[in-house]
C-alpha cells in the first residue's frame, strides 16, 4: 500500500493513490464533472469508467447514496464532492447509513469521502470547509490533510480500517509538496492549533508574532474526529502562559468550539492550570460575491491581532 516516496504535491499524491486503488484494488472513484477544472485540480487520474472512474449525474442526494451502496458492495469507493458546501445534500446517506451500518448491523461501510474546500470567492455557494456537520455524528472519522505525507497517512488508515472517512480537503493543499512540522518552544505565550488552510496563515502569523516579541507554539490538527488530546497538546498548553487559539476554515459555531471545549475539559481537574482557549473561524454571516463581502478563514493579520488580544486581556506580557 505504501506509495513511492519521491517528492510530489498533494494533488499528485491523491491522483497516484486513486490510480492505484482503481487499477490494483478493484476500487471505485465516483463524482460529478470529474474532468472539470483540470480533472479536479489534477487530483483525478485520467482513467475510464471501465477502469472504475465513475461519472455520476448531478443528483447530489442520490449520489451520496450510490457511493454508500458501492461501499456495501466492498469496492471501498472514493467519493469526490467538489465543493464542501454540496455536503448539505450529500451528507444524508453518509452519516445516516454508512456511519451507522457497523453499529446497527455489524456491516462495515468503508467510504472515502473527498470533500474539497476553498477560501471563499464564490459568494453563498459555501466554498469553505464543512467538516463540522460530520463531526457531530457518530461512526465517521474526520480529518483534514494538507501535505502529501499526511494524505498518505490518511489513506493508509482508510485501507487498514473499515470506517467511513470524511476527508476535509482544501484546494490550497493541492500544490503543497512539503511537510508542516509543529512548532514547540520552551516558553511560549500562546499555543495556536490550526486546521486545514488556516495552517498556512498560522505559519506566517507565528513568524510575524515572533518579530513582535511574542512566542507561539503551533500544532497542526490533522485528525479532527476522533480528536485525540495527546501529551504534546497538554504540555504545550501548560507551558503557554496565556492559553490557546484554535483556527478553522469552517464556521465558528462548529468543530472549533467542540475541539476547544474538549481540550478545556481534558485540562480541567487533572492537575493542569486552567487555560482559556479562543476560537477563530468563518464569521456567523453569509458570504457575498463582492470581495469585501466575502467570508474568509482567519487571515494572518487577524490571527496576529487575536493572539495579541489574548495576551492583553490576560494581564499583558511583561
Amino acid at each position: 500500500m505504501e506509495e513511492t516516496t519521491q517528492k510530489m504535491t498533494v494533488a499528485e499524491k491523491i491522483s497516484q493513490i486513486t490510480r492505484n486503488h482503481l487499477l490494483k484494488n478493484n476500487g471505485l472513484a465516483l463524482g460529478q464533472c470529474l474532468t472539470a477544472v483540470g480533472w479536479v485540480g489534477g487530483t483525478i487520474p485520467h482513467l475510464s469508467e471501465k477502469e472504475g472512474l465513475v461519472e455520476l449525474s448531478m443528483a447530489d442526494v442520490s449520489g451520496g447514496g450510490i457511493a454508500v451502496g458501492a461501499a456495501l458492495a466492498g469496492r471501498r469507493p472514493i467519493y469526490i464532492v467538489r465543493y464542501q458546501g454540496f455536503q448539505w445534500y450529500n451528507a444524508a446517506s453518509i452519516v445516516n447509513y454508512a456511519a451507522k451500518s457497523k453499529d446497527m448491523w455489524g456491516i462495515p461501510c468503508p467510504i472515502f469521502v473527498r470533500s474539497i474546500a476553498m477560501d471563499g470567492a464564490i459568494g453563498p455557494v459555501a466554498s469553505g470547509s464543512h467538516h463540522s456537520i460530520f463531526i457531530r455524528m457518530p461512526g465517521i472519522v474526520v480529518c483534514a490533510p494538507m501535505t502529501p505525507n499526511e494524505y498518505q497517512q490518511v489513506w493508509n488508515y482508510f485501507m487498514e480500517h473499515d470506517d467511513p472517512m470524511y476527508i476535509s480537503e482544501h484546494k490550497k493543499s493541492f500544490p503543497i509538496d512539503y511537510d508542516m512540522k509543529d512548532i514547540i518552544k520552551p516558553k511560549a505565550d500562546v499555543t495556536i492549533f490550526a486546521i486545514s488552510s488556516t495552517r498556512i496563515n498560522a505559519i506566517e502569523a507565528v513568524k510575524t508574532l515572533e518579530g513582535n516579541g511574542i512566542v507561539c507554539n503551533l500544532i497542526h490538527l490533522l485528525w479532527l474526529k476522533p480528536f485525540v488530546i495527546n501529551k504534546k497538546i497538554i504540555a504545550s498548553l501548560n507551558q503557554s502562559r496565556f492559553g490557546g487559539l484554535i483556527l478553522d476554515g469552517d464556521f465558528e459555531n462548529g468543530a472549533l468550539k467542540c475541539l476547544a471545549f474538549d481540550i478545556i475539559q481534558k485540562l480541567t481537574g487533572s492537575g493542569n492550570k486552567f487555560k482559556p482557549i479562543k476560537t477563530l473561524g468563518l464569521e456567523e454571516r453569509s458570504a457575498g460575491f463582492a470581495p469585501h463581502l466575502d467570508n474568509l478563514p482567519p487571515t494572518t493579520g487577524k490571527i496576529v491581532k487575536t493572539v495579541e488580544y489574548i495576551i492583553n486581556s490576560n494581564g499583558k506580557k511583561n
Binding site: V54, S62, G65, A67, V68, G69, A70
Partner: peptide, 10 residues
C-alpha cells in the same frame, strides 16, 4: 433506493 443502485453499480 440510491444505496441499492450503488450496490448494483459496485
Amino acid at each position: 433506493i440510491p444505496i441499492a443502485v450503488g450496490y448494483a453499480l459496485g
